[in-house]
Design a protein around this nucleic acid. Structure first.
Lengths: 140, 140
DNA sequence: AAAAATTTGTTCGTATACAAAGGAATTATC
DNA sequence: GATAATTCCTTTGTATACGAACAAATTTTT
């Protein structure tokens, strides 16, 4: 079995990518039974925090490209997770709300994210958890 | 301006994703003049480490889905960064090599990754850098 | 109020990502 | 030594990602 080039385990882009790949994949597995993706779950969290946001507001909140979000919202409308309703003040804008079905599943779905988060953090000590999160936040 | 839901800055999947998004985007900017992507650069690093690897070996080394790698290698062959040559022992296998053009740019390209890495790390103290990398490696 | 600039959201093009299925070649098993 | 199991890689289908260009609507400027 080939080993890693000496530098790769030192390269932050690589390390961040692989750590995210792992966390992202695990969380997606957890969401699979619901037919939701990580990204779609994230959108719901945003909308539960503040229902009726516009796509632009959501994309700023979640640090997402508006072109990416556009597709995500399309699929979520298609599958009934969210509802778009036109803004009477500004005809360019659509206000976005979680659907009733989504709201019904809210406690369960929030719980899933907490589980996924704990699974990641449990290998670290409480001090390490604080530090790790601080490092990541400092990058954003 | 909307603020983040209280939990998002605590969610590791979110934090890892955004930190990676940032690092990945910055590195891609640096590589843009060469017409290379982060992923393609990574493939070259793998091949410089051990030329003649098969796609399967590369995908294990770089922790990549083989289906994803297949497309990346196609594009890199198309643009002349790598060369595929059939293995005489096993007709299923293609051995992959960096092209002459790629080798010529090797020092310059390696330097780019180092620069990107430093840009990320310079905001942390030496002790923090060690810790941060350890945390990320522990996740993989 | 007409022209210019900006904002909102979509569409297009390209590049990952990965599950699942498939074709071709090789190896293992009986 | 023929069948089964495995391996290598590609293809298909769906979901991000994001730059760039765009139409429609709104705001700003003059």
């Amino acid at each position: 079995m080939t080993r890693l080039p000496e530098d790769l385990p030192e390269c932050m882009v690589f390390l961040l990518g692989k750590a995210y790949q792992k966390a992202h994949g695990d969380f997606n597995q957890r969401l699979r039974p619901y037919g939701l993706t990580n990204m779609q779950h994230l959108v719901l969290e945003g909308l539960w925090y503040q229902p009726g946001m516009t796509a632009t507001e959501l994309s700023k909140l979640l640090i997402l490209d508006k072109a990416t979000l556009s597709g995500v919202l399309d699929r979520m409308t298609e599958t009934g997770w969210i509802i778009k309703s036109p803004d009477p003040q500004d005809r360019r804008v659509q206000r976005i709300y979680p659907s009733e079905d989504a709201n019904r599943l809210k406690p369960e779905l929030i719980e899933k994210r907490k589980e996924a988060n704990l699974e990641i953090l449990e290998r670290f000590t409480p001090e390490e958890r604080i530090l790790f999160k601080r490092f990541l936040r400092d990058m954003i």
